[in-house]
Design a protein around this nucleic acid. Sequence first.
RNA 1: CGGGGCGUAGCGCAGCUUGGUAGCGCGCCUGCUUUGGGAGCAGGAUGUCGCAGGUUCAAAUCCUGCCGCCCCGACCA
Length: 573
Amino acid sequence: MRYSEMFLPTTKEIPSDAEIVSHQLMLRAGMIRKLAGGIYTYLPLGYRVIKKVENIVREEMNRAGAQELFMPAVQPAELWMESGRWNMYGKELLRVKDRHNRDYCIGPTHEEVITALVRDEIQTYRQLPMNLYQIQTKFRDEIRPRFGVMRSREFGMKDAYSFDADEAGAEKSYRKMFDAYIRIFRRCGLHFRPVEADSGNIGGSFSHEFMVTAESGEDAMVHCTSCDYAANLEKAEVSRPEGKADQAVDFSPIEEVHTPDIRTIEEVCAFLDVKPGDIVKTMIFVGDGKPVAVLVRGDEDVNETKLRNYLGCDSLELAMDDTILEVTGSPRGFAGPIGIKSVIIADYSLIGMGNFVVGANRENYHIKNCNIGRDFEIRNYADLRIVKEGDLCPRCGKELKIARGIEVGHVFKLGMKYSKSMNATFLDSDGKEKYMIMGCYGIGIGRTAAACIEQSRDGDGIIWPMPIAPFQVIITPVNINDENLARVAEELYKGFVEEGVEVILDDRNERAGVKFKDADLIGIPIRITVGAKSLAEGKVEVRSRKSGEVEKVSLETVRDFITKTIMEQLSIS
RNA sequence: CGGGGCGUAGCGCAGCUUGGUAGCGCGCCUGCUUUGGGAGCAGGAUGUCGCAGGUUCAAAUCCUGCCGCCCCGACCA
């Protein structure tokens, strides 16, 4: 490619509406342009990167035995009604009507389509296992798209679906995908970590997210400083404290105190001169329509995902004021366990606490020296709180840390959720009809590219790892008007093209500085500078974008030198 | 959906308080000089001031409604 002919609009100025570095750099490097909120065009340079990522994904999926197909983006409502998701999915599902007023949606995912296909075509265990994937444009009408291509409404995704005859097979399929993902993200040059994740209301039992570590990441993940335990914050477990009696103290006489207009933990602490750790928070939730009181120590927070899983309910939300009044008999801010009209469950953090402060279920009153067993009963203790940095690892007991990350991929064991609702069965070797056991596996393509930029860039621009760089080499003749330089650059260029090297020749009539700045901005791993001084010695300069190191290489040996360097940087450890 | 902000040349912004001639930087075009880290000089082009209504002799500026975009929050297979 010749730079002079390429549609590559780079900018010096930072676009004002781009929040994170990858978004800014993708705009500045002429990779993307916005069409509407959360909807982007990939320009030629950006699309080259996308195709690189897609091809890595494709190679590794094929290697793992998955087969590529291509499903429709537009899907009929009937399928979604079958799985029950037409009503469950909510506003994120973009619904459209055709000319006959029939309902369709733009696919946010493809479980329905693939399950319907496999259900109709696979009859016997002899045809299993099966793993099918596609790379497709999805649409999710996000409430708030942001960070450019990182959280957009329209986006490219690889989604794979496995179908197995039994649990053992499903485990194996899951493991294969897990391993393939590790190869994929390694090849993309990313620093990442697979973390245990909640499987959400997609159902199923097991799930990992692949998180690229980045400060700008939207997700929090927890990892152990000692063993390899790592989990999504939602999922991260807290062990039941050992060696602590449920009640460890002598009971003091219970005492109701007047606390006028004192509601929050901070206010109670200041007013009663206690620490948050001396208080028990009573949170009223409504799960599938029924109120539940959740007790958690004052310095902890309830993890709604854990609570939802514990209760086994579909919907869960904090109670509204009228429900609180109904259950506690008092307005918001004074809820407590004593006399409450609902089930009470307590987080592990309450174990060993005694003589604590709670709300009195009476406006403007709290209770001191409250105790479980004497003053009220709980149904059970459970792990219901959000993990904090410094908590102990549920596996090895060492300290946990929290880091931020970008979710670039996830693997789910779906189980029979869709095969049941959509009746995807097969005839097993024992002659019985059984439901297929499914798994689904996604990778955000654009997000992976953006995550890479977050991790690999400097003040001058992007630093692409060789495997996903839009070009492997850029040739920069310092002055195109110097016929000698222009000729040598041209010959080098043609040589590389013949060799199959992905090369761009910066043949623009620009000053050297401009070309250097652009080359750095768009992040080509290797730059060959053709300048008068070195050329006098029969040499050109080979510069690494990453290290900035420059090596003078003779014209006779550059081709070998470059192809060797590229090969080295393409192979994974 | 709640709160906040923005919409003026391709991009980044000023002008709006206090109504009257639309401006700056970058980019773009022409010429000359320059040519190893975003060049200099000279000349030049470019705007339904987001849209629609209203007030006024007069609206980018004041008022009303709408649309779009950004940030915070709620939401999230």
